[in-house]
Design a protein around this nucleic acid. Structure first.
Lengths: 238, 238
DNA sequence: TCTACTGGCGAACACTGTTCGTGTCAACTA
DNA sequence: TAGTTGACACGAACAGTGTTCGCCAGTAGA
C-alpha cells in the first residue's frame, strides 16, 4: 500500500541551517525559557527549524538526552571563582545563590535538574569546585561530598517550587514583587479561613505562615544548611 | 453521519462496582506503588474497573486532582503523636523520618508532592502539627512556619531523588541493600575514572563521594536543618 | 564510476488527557 | 402512577506526545 509518490518531489527544502546539536539545545532552551519545559516537545523544537521531529534524532539520542544537555548547558553559567578557604562557608553560600538565581532565570528548568542524577561535564565542574572548597575549609572529605549533594538538592528543589508558584498564578503581566504580594494575601486569607477548632495554629498564625519573601525563605534554609557545617570541620582551613 | 446503532445494544455491562472516588484513588495508588507514577494514566486506572477513561471524570475533575487526592491520601498515614515541647526538635526529626519513610514506601509518588503546593486536608493536619510544635518549642511563629516548609521541602526532594536511584538501576530482583551497594560501586569507579587533571578532587576522593548509605545522607541534611533551629528559639519551651 | 554512509524527513504507531453526545437508570415531583 | 430531572456511564473522537521505519538526497572514499 505504501508506494513512492511518482509526482516530482515538491522542492525538498535543504535545511537552511544544517541541523546541529548545539543549535538544537539553543532552540530548546529558548522555548523552555519562554513557555516552560512542558512546551519543549520534539515537534516543537523541530518546528523551530522548519522540519519534523525525526530529524532531531540524528543529533540527540532521545528527549531525555536533550533535557540533560539543556541542563548541563545552563550549569555552564555558574561562576566558579578561585577558592578562598578562610571564608569557605561564605563562598559556598555565594555559589548557591548564584546557581539558584540561574535556575530561576530559566523558568521551570529546575524540574529536569531534580528529575535526573546530574552527571554532565558542567555539573561535574561545579561539584569539583564545591568538594575542593569544603575540603580546603577543613571538612572531612565524605562530609564535604554529602554537603555538596544535600545543598544542591535543596537549591534545585527550592527553585522548582518557586517556578510552581510563578506558574500557578499566571499573573503574567504583574511585576515580580507585585505578584508575590498578591499570592501572599490570597494564601493568608486561605489560612485565616480554616476552621479554628481543627487548625488553631494555621488559622491563628496565618500572618506568620505567609511572612517573608521567597528570597528570605530560601536564605533561611540555606543558612541552616551551611552554617551548620561549621561544627564538622576537623582541621583548620587551608 | 453519526447515527444511533439500531442493533440491540450489546449487553451494556453494569459496572460491577459502581465507581466511587475513594476506590479510584485506591486503584491509582495500587498502580503507582507497583509500576510507578508514570504508569498512572486515566486509561490505566479506568481499566482497573473494566471501563474507559471518560468514566472517571464524573468523580474526579481531572488527572491533576487525582494526583492531589493520591498524595493527600498517603499524607493521612503520617503519625502525629501528642506534642512534647521539651524535646520538640527530636519530635520534629521523628515526624520527618516518618514522612520520609512513607514517601519511600510509595514508589516515586514524592514527585507529585514536589509538583504541587500541598493543600489537602491531611497535609494541612501535618503542617498544623508542625507549626504548633515549633511555636510551643519557643520558635518565633514566622520562623516556625518557615522551618515547617523548608524541612518538608527537603524531605520530599530527598524521597524523590531516592526513587530516581531505585528506578535508574532496575536491579529489581536485588534486595535493597545489595542494589545500593552495587550502585555505589558503579558510581565510585565513574568518579575515579574522571581525568585527574580537571577533576582532582572528584577523582581523588571518589571514595568519599560515594560514602555512606542513603539513610545516612538523609539524616545528615536533616540534622543540619533541625539542629540549626535551636539558635532561633526566643522563649523557653512550653 | 560505483559504493557506503550520513543526515534529513514524511508517515505511521502506540500512547496520552480531555470533551462531546448519547445512553441508562434511580429518585423525586405532579 | 406517570413524567421529568439529574447523576452517572462510556464509546468515539480530537489534538497532542515520543519514537521508529524506510526511503530519499548528497557527499566522501575507493
Amino acid at each position: 500500500m505504501k508506494t513512492t509518490p511518482w509526482q516530482p518531489l515538491p522542492d525538498r527544502k535543504i535545511a537552511r541551517v544544517p541541523l546541529d546539536r548545539e543549535q538544537i539545545i539553543d532552540a530548546a532552551l529558548r522555548i523552555s525559557d519562554a513557555e516552560g519545559i512542558d512546551a519543549v516537545s520534539m515537534r516543537r523544537v523541530a518546528a523551530e527549524f522548519d522540519t519534523g521531529p525525526s530529524s532531531l534524532y540524528a543529533h540527540v539520542a532521545n528527549k531525555d538526552e536533550l533535557l540533560r544537555l539543556m541542563f548541563d548547558r545552563i550549569c555552564g553559567e555558574i561562576e566558579l571563582p578561585p577558592h578562598e578557604p578562610e571564608r569557605w562557608q561564605q563562598q559556598v553560600k555565594e555559589l548557591m545563590r548564584n546557581t539558584h538565581q540561574i535556575l530561576l532565570a530559566h523558568n521551570d528548568l529546575a524540574r529536569v535538574a531534580l528529575a535526573m542524577i546530574p552527571n554532565g561535564p558542567n555539573a561535574l565542574r561545579a561539584s569539583e569546585w564545591m568538594l575542593g572548597l569544603t575540603i580546603k575549609g577543613g571538612m572531612p572529605p565524605h562530609l564535604g561530598a554529602w554537603a555538596n549533594e544535600r545543598i544542591f538538592l535543596y537549591v534545585t528543589a527550592d527553585a522548582y517550587e518557586a517556578s510552581l508558584w510563578r506558574a500557578q498564578m499566571g499573573h503574567l503581566g504583574l511585576p515580580k514583587a507585585e505578584a508575590e504580594l498578591r499570592a501572599r494575601n490570597e494564601l493568608g486569607v486561605y489560612f485565616a479561613d480554616l476552621p479554628a477548632d481543627r487548625f488553631p495554629y494555621l488559622s491563628g498564625f496565618s500572618g506568620a505562615m505567609t511572612a517573608g519573601t521567597s528570597e528570605e525563605r530560601f536564605e533561611f534554609g540555606l543558612d541552616l544548611l551551611i552554617d551548620g557545617l561549621g561544627r564538622y570541620v576537623s582541621r583548620s582551613p587551608e
